[in-house]
Simulated scan of single mutants.
Amino acid sequence: MSQQMPDTESLKAFNEAITDEFRANDGKVGGQFEGADLLLLTTTGAKSGQPRVSPLAYFRVDGKLLIIGSFAGADVNPAWVHNLRANPSAHIEVGNEPSEVTARELPPDERDELFGKITAAAPGFAEYQAKTSRVIPVFELQPAD
């Protein structure tokens, strides 16, 4: 049972609206993400070389800043995963604090351990994993040197 791919244009408009609201309100947004820990991740497009902004939930687990490539359980990774794999240097905004980071994709053992802690705090991510045959990737964002 495969998942529908989110419509690219709808997703783009949705992300732009959240991004605008985030920047206008020091990182606070309403709707389905009200009260969630969100950051804006700016990656470099793997093909285009253009900056790409994605609003994402983040988690702090064991002192690590983590983001999850769930794409709501779709059978493909979100574009930002592909972009980070091609170029792990990125820019984030947490609240009104911008910073440069380097993304590190967690190896399987570490990913499994931390994913369990994430799903304990946010059970929706376990539901997303159950919907897809791919292993949902988890990235640690580390301050750039």
Rank of each mutant, 00 (worst) to 15 (best):
S2H: 11
S2Q: 12
Q4I: 12
M5C: 05
M5L: 15
T8Y: 10
L11V: 09
K12W: 04
A17D: 13
A17N: 13
D20F: 02
D20R: 14
E21G: 02
E21H: 08
F22G: 03
R23F: 01
N25P: 11
D26M: 03
D26W: 01
V29Y: 10
V29L: 08
G30M: 08
F33H: 12
L39K: 05
L41Q: 06
L41H: 04
G45F: 09
A46C: 05
K47I: 07
G49E: 12
Q50G: 00
P51Q: 04
L56I: 07
L56D: 02
A57V: 15
F59N: 09
V61F: 08
L65K: 01
L65D: 06
I67P: 07
I68S: 06
I68Y: 01
S70P: 11
A74E: 11
D75T: 09
V76W: 00
N77V: 05
W80T: 02
V81W: 00
H82D: 11
L84M: 06
N87C: 09
N87P: 01
S89Q: 14
H91C: 00
H91E: 13
H91S: 12
V94K: 11
V94W: 03
N96C: 05
E97L: 11
E97M: 11
E97I: 09
S99W: 00
V101T: 09
R104C: 02
L106Q: 04
L106W: 06
P107I: 08
R111T: 08
R111N: 10
D112R: 14
F115T: 10
G116L: 09
G116W: 11
I118D: 05
P123D: 13
G124N: 15
F125T: 06
F125G: 07
A126R: 12
E127F: 13
Y128G: 04
Q129Y: 05
Q129E: 09
Q129I: 12
S133N: 13
S133Y: 03
V135T: 15
I136M: 04
V138P: 03
E140C: 06
P143T: 06
A144E: 07
D145E: 14
